[in-house]
């Protein structure tokens, strides 16, 4: 039975200890549904690992393993090789937060992609180290407050742009990489499924709201993730065998104002107090736009 095109069966059980409104928990429901029964999950240390397996309980109904923070891609490599040795045809899906993926596990991820293992790596991207208490990562966006990139008299929050990991992985020659958002869940589900079903190393960056870390209202998690797409901050696109395909935003001249997105999140509050920091917001808007223009150019040129 399918509901909205998604299988009804749950592989990630309630009773998990994620915060109310956790975008990553929704992400994991989408991921496990896309994975299906014949799959093995490899998890990095992080929120989802902690909230899902308080020994002696487990939220999982699939084969699931956690080793350490940085090595999910390497553990997945070993599992994929073991399955090959045993002649088993099971999907291997590594999952990590952005800290595990963009930062500490980056070398492992690059190694596994270069070797060409048949597996999918999915990053639930909530843009900071949330499990340890909202510290800055390579995925934290420009201007965002975190506990290690606080805003202050001399700081607007994080002062560096978010790492473009999707393109870095595409540059490894991956047959399928995609950027998705839980705000467009059916689209995310399709991308996850495509990635999992595509042979070779594939990657999906799945944008997932963290109300605790983003200082946002729990009921707004999906709305924010949708706005991230509609303002162009988190464009939905795929790179299939090296060729871009942009999904949303559909028209870059009709983007929603960035402020609509920023204002829903306490992590950007300093950009509006004591008065609006026009310069910073404009800079962000311009860079978002430039990024979208690049994506469109790639698509137009068949790249």
């Amino acid at each position: 039975m399918a509901i909205m095109g998604l299988p009804e069966e749950e592989y990630f059980s309630y009773g998990h200890r994620a915060c109310a409104g956790c975008g990553a928990a929704t992400a994991l429901r989408l991921i496990t549904k896309a994975a299906g029964r014949n799959s093995i999950l490899v998890e990095s240390t992080g929120c989802i690992e902690v909230v899902s397996t308080p020994y002696p309980e487990t939220a999982w109904k699939l084969p699931w393993i956690h080793g350490a923070f940085e090595n999910a891609a390497s553990i997945a490599s070993g599992i994929e090789a073991a399955l090959k040795y045993s002649g088993e045809n099971t999907k291997v899906i590594a999952i990590g937060g952005d800290g595990a993926t963009y930062d500490i596990g980056f070398g492992h991820l690059s190694g596994a992609f270069e070797r060409g293992h048949d597996f999918t790596y999915i990053c639930y991207d909530n843009e900071a180290y949330m499990n340890t208490g909202i510290q800055r990562s390579g995925s934290t966006p420009y201007g965002a407050y975190t506990t290690t990139s606080p805003s202050g008299k001399k700081s607007i929050g994080k002062e560096e742009w978010k790492k473009d990991l999707v393109h870095i992985l595409a540059a490894h020659g991956s047959p399928y990489v995609a950027n998705a958002s839980i705000g467009y869940a059916t689209d995310a589900f399709k991308k996850l499924k495509t990635a999992i079903e595509t042979e070779g190393p594939t990657f999906v960056n799945l944008f997932a709201t963290c109300p605790t870390g983003w200082r946002s209202a729990t009921e707004k998690s999906i709305e924010i993730a949708k706005l991230a797409v509609d303002t162009g901050v988190c464009p939905l696109y795929e790179i299939i065998d090296g060729k871009h395909k942009l999904g949303r935003p559909k028209d870059i001249d009709k983007l929603k104002p960035l402020e609509e997105y920023l204002k829903l999140q306490g992590r950007y509050r300093h950009l509006f107090r004591p008065e609006k920091n026009k310069e910073t917001i404009e800079f962000m808007e311009n860079r978002v736009r430039k990024n979208l223009e690049n994506l469109l150019k790639y698509e137009e040129c068949g790249l």
Binding site: G15, R17, P56, E57, T58, K61
Partner: peptide
């Protein structure tokens, strides 16, 4: 552990 969704406890 057996993956049986026991967090439902």
């Amino acid at each position: 552990l057996e993956s049986n969704g026991s967090t439902a406890n």
